[in-house]
Write a protein that binds this DNA or RNA. Structure first.
Length: 476
RNA sequence: GGCGCCAUCGCCAAGUGGUAAGGCAGAGGUCUGCAAAACCUCCAUCUCCGGUUCAAAUCCGGAUGGCGCCUCCA
């Protein structure tokens, strides 16, 4: 398996430190607001990676943190007049609502910064002992000049950073680049006792402390959005490697951004979209398809048109799955005449995903299967005693390779008939009209039958007549 | 100013030296009472200019055009 390593900016053969086992850490969210689709992409990408690594038979320990204390949380809690703790709790709950709807697997551990103050203090002390940290007036800073190798992830060097520094000058710091490991708390702010007085952790230190606790000094994969490369991940390296003297992560994996209508999504532009808002418009698997249909490192452009393309594409796959399931009609044989074909498709899928999680190429395999299946189902060739069994095997296989991508896990009918909210016809009403139309049709009263179909069409319902009866789905 | 990324059909998107996957949309056809779905056929030489090579979308140089990070950020 090849994975692109941000550390060296190239694809490298991925070999876990412990055979068969993988330790993976992904930076999670700061819980002071609802998640937007940029978070969604990152979350879906690492969920896909987690799922795929497990699919490949690895025992994966996946850690994703919650940053539940920081300036933004404190500011917002002051604005709202609620405690920082209550605010964090609220958005952790909201986070889970979104994640469950997106079908994200729960990581092995989801540590919170404030549950690891002891570990954080211990780590800061260790850095202090090694001369890599210094305390000033209740704050503790990292002494950057003394950590050689700073900038190896982001490709920056200390001199360039110093010359172009836009950081606030703070006379108490030895260098403008030194960053806070521990912050003295102001009166009224949340605080924890420490050797340096009451305070709270800096932003970067929690990840170093928690990854070490759950995964050890060195682990396999560390991930997050591209924007975290500098300074967050760079600083994590300085902290963790400064303290342990060992490499922090073997592979650094970073996902690309989400743009909206070709513009960077940002709060200042007012063009950010929450996961919740989007999910009112489209099925969660459509969002997942949208994410997974491009490579995780490329930027993706979010627009109504692109979501519509994703929806239409996914529908095609579900049409095939639907036909397969109908043909299988409960057949549960685990082998069939299609086994060889299935093995070959599985190989194609694995080859695609083994190449730096190339999910876009993996999607192409899904469509190849779909195409061949439709052709096979249409052909109606003889010697098909095996057909239900084979169809069942293929359906199961489609779901097997769809699973790491988070696709095709829904009941096809439910997916194709999704929607039906306010003002639209209910399934019962639709079925009734279909029955009326069937009566008209059996009397060869085409005009009446077409009138009903046109009516349904206006209401966004499409009919599919077949020998087995009439199926319906909603237009989207 | 420093560092880095990208540019493939109307849209989305793979491809990393051997002669352009896939999806959506579009055109024609098959099936159908008519449709829908599906199937068949058609639909790009890869921003531009040089270079390396028997061979380049793929490597090198340059140009143009996008974008990101350097400040909180997935």
């Amino acid at each position: 398996m090849q994975i692109y390593n941000s550390l060296n900016r190239k694809k490298e053969e991925f070999i876990p430190g412990n055979p068969g086992k993988i330790g993976m850490y992904a930076c999670g969210v700061t819980v002071y607001d609802l998640c937007h689709i940029g978070h969604a992409r990152s979350l879906v990408v690492f969920d896909m990676i987690y799922r795929y690594l497990k699919y490949r038979g690895y025992e994966v320990t996946f850690v994703r943190n919650f940053t539940d204390i920081d300036d933004k949380i404190i500011n917002r809690s002051n604005e709202r007049g609620v405690s920082w703790k209550a605010l964090a709790e609220q958005y952790i709950e909201e986070f889970y609502v979104d994640m469950d709807r997106l079908g994200l697997l729960r990581p092995t551990y989801e540590p919170r910064a404030t549950d690891h103050i002891v570990e954080i203090i211990e780590l800061v002390r260790k850095l202090e002992e090694k001369g890599l940290a210094y305390a000033v007036d209740g704050d503790v800073y990292y002494r950057l000049q003394d950590f050689k190798g700073y900038g190896k992830l982001s490709g920056k060097n200390i001199d360039d950073l110093l010359s172009g520094a836009r950081v606030e000058v703070d006379d108490r710091k030895e260098s403008p680049l030194d960053f806070a490991l521990w912050k003295k708390s102001k009166p009224g702010e949340p605080s924890w006792e420490s050797p340096w007085g009451a305070g709270r952790p800096g932003w970067h230190i929690e990840c170093s402390a928690m990854s070490r606790k759950f995964l050890g000094d060195t682990f396999d994969i560390h991930g997050g959005g591209k924007d975290l490369i500098f300074p967050h991940h760079e600083n994590e390296i300085a902290q963790s490697e400064g303290a342990s003297g060992k490499p922090l992560a073997r592979f650094w994996v970073h996902n690309g951004f989400v743009n909206i209508d070709s513009e960077k999504m940002s709060k200042s532009l007012g063009n950010f979209l929450t996961i919740r808002e989007l999910l009112e418009e489209c099925h969660p698997e459509i969002l997942r398809f949208f994410v997974v249909s491009s490579h995780y490192r490329s930027p993706i452009d979010f627009s109504n048109e692109n979501v519509a393309v994703a929806a239409a594409s996914l529908e095609r796959l579900y049409q095939s799955l639907d036909r397969l399931l109908r043909t299988a009609a409960g057949a549960s044989a685990t082998t069939s005449s299609m086994d060889e074909k299935i093995d070959s498709w599985r190989q194609d899928f694995t080859t695609a995903m083994d190449d730096d999680f190339n999910s876009a190429a993996a999607c192409a395999v899904l469509f190849e299967v779909s195409k061949e299946v439709n052709r096979w189902l249409d052909a109606d060739i003889a010697a098909e005693d095996d057909k239900p069994a084979a169809a069942g095997c293929i359906a199961r296989f489609l779901r097997e390779i769809g699973a790491p991508l988070g696709l095709l896990q829904e009941d096809p009918q439910a997916f194709l008939q999704r929607g039906g909210s306010d003002g639209e016809l209910s399934a019962v009403e639709i079925e009734a009209l279909i029955a009326d139309r069937a009566a008209a049709r059996s009397g060869r009263n085409w005009a009446a039958a077409d009138r009903i179909r046109d009516l349904l069409d206006e209401k966004g319902v499409i009919l599919k007549d077949s020998a087995a009866g009439t199926l319906w789905q909603r237009k989207h």
